[in-house]
């Protein structure tokens, strides 16, 4: 159903942390508008893979091309990063700024938008993620679910072409998970390109075009959700049995 050209091309990427070989030759193409859900055991390299895509981590070997720009020789990584929104497990809202200013500051500093325009976009997005009334609150005054929705809005304010999610709901209380997943589902429906590390299998079933199991720094299996959940691969079956019983 997605026939667009790849917007992310990852080719045989390796990453070491000292003696830890975190990524062992990962190759993956993500097409425009595609939603890829990555699962895998803790420490398998999911975060590292995601963080290589916007070069929060630099890979040692291989190559990544994002929207036609090779990260090997990206002269200005900040240009690439402007096109990639990232949502973290721990929200990482700017603690000293109100919700509104969290959304406005980066637009002004990075996108050079006027204050009025930035605020208008910010308020629109806060409305979209369902918390228009919290614009003047500080992050610490919000619940985890609200903070994560603000973080998504903050990333969207930059008009990214790609959104990366690193376990966006795993720091949340169960009753708040849905409100965040709903926002992500909407995004997926709108055609956003998304790479999501998450063990929320309900979300994966509803939104994923493709699912990927990563283990020990390698892609073990890659399939559309229906096939993935019916996989005969032993490691996939074993891991799915764990996350489906969570």
């Amino acid at each position: 159903m997605n026939s667009g050209e790849p917007i992310i091309q990852i080719k045989d990427v390796h990453k070491h942390f000292g003696r830890v070989h975190a990524l062992r030759g990962v190759s993956l193409d993500v097409r425009k508008g595609e939603v890829v859900v990555i699962i895998g055991p803790s420490g398998s390299g999911k975060s590292t893979l995601l963080r290589c895509i916007n070069r929060l981590e630099e890979y040692d070997a291989g190559n990544i091309v994002v929207d036609g720009i090779s990260l090997d020789n990206a002269k200005n990584i900040n240009i690439v990063r402007q096109e990639i929104g990232m949502v973290f497990q721990s929200f990482n809202l700017f603690a000293h700024l109100t919700v509104l200013k969290n959304l406005v500051l980066t637009q002004r500093v990075v996108r050079k938008r006027s204050n009025e325009e930035s605020e208008r976009i910010a308020l629109e997005l806060l409305n979209k993620v369902g918390i228009p009334d919290k614009a003047e609150a500080f992050p610490i005054q919000l619940s985890g679910g609200q903070q994560q929705r603000v973080a998504i809005a903050r990333a969207l304010a930059m008009n990214p072409k790609i959104m990366l999610f690193d376990e966006p709901t795993s720091a949340l209380d169960p009753e708040m998970i849905k409100e965040v997943l709903d926002v992500m589902l909407d995004l997926a429906k709108e055609g956003m390109t998304m790479v999501v590390v998450s063990h929320e299998m309900g979300f994966a079933r509803a939104a994923a075009d493709r699912m990927i199991l990563v283990d020990e720094g390698q892609i073990v299996e890659e399939a559309v959700p229906d096939k993935f959940f019916a996989s005969t691969n032993e490691r996939t079956k074993l891991f799915l049995s764990k996350v489906l019983h969570m």
């Binding site: 929060l56 900040n78 990063r81 973290f88 700017f94 980066t106 990075v110």
Partner: peptide, 10 residues
């Protein structure tokens, strides 16, 4: 905090 800022292109 630094990572979030950098990921936004600062």
């Amino acid at each position: 905090q630094m990572e979030a800022a950098r990921s936004l292109g600062m």
